[in-house]
């Protein structure tokens, strides 16, 4: 089950990196991970991933890249604190497929929408056993 507060606290620098990645890959969906120490609930290490589907409506981590990244996290006593992806024509809300494949019960699922050119929607959810719970996002300059 998820631990920590029902809130995502994240450094501004990491928010900017996610948004930049989403903009760069638009109109395809961008995806990635922010790793942090196990149990800390603190996103620290930004890891942009390849979207193996290269699609505007679907994303999937490349299986070999995922294997290497997950093994690295294991070696560093980290876990995926944030799993992010972009929606490029729809709002930043988990779709039916996002819920069906959500497989990291401890992760904050971050969605960004690049549907509007002027404004990026940045939202965070817990997705556990098919249930979506939106949570507030607190952007900080640095972790206290």
């Amino acid at each position: 089950m998820p631990y920590g507060e029902a809130m995502l606290t994240i450094a501004r620098e990491l928010v900017d990196k996610i948004v930049a990645h989403a903009r760069a890959d638009h109109p395809d969906e961008a995806c990635g991970v922010i790793a942090g120490p196990v149990g800390s609930d603190r996103p620290e290490r930004f890891i942009p991933m390849e979207n193996a589907e290269r699609s505007p409506t679907f994303y999937r981590f490349d299986s070999m890249e995922q294997f290497r990244v997950w093994r690295d996290m294991d070696d560093r006593d980290e876990e995926p604190v944030v799993i992010y992806h972009s929606h490029t024509a729809t709002e930043a809300y988990p779709s039916r497929t996002d819920v069906a494949y959500a497989s990291e019960p401890n992760a904050h699922y971050v969605l960004v929408s690049t549907a509007s050119e002027d404004d990026v929607e940045f939202r965070s959810y817990r997705i556990v056993e098919g249930v979506i719970t939106e949570e507030p996002v607190k952007i900080v300059e640095a972790y206290g």
Partner: peptide
């Protein structure tokens, strides 16, 4: 043998 759930989803 390592098992990892795929990380996937999409807009639909």
């Amino acid at each position: 043998v390592t098992v990892l759930p795929a990380v996937a989803g999409g807009a639909r």
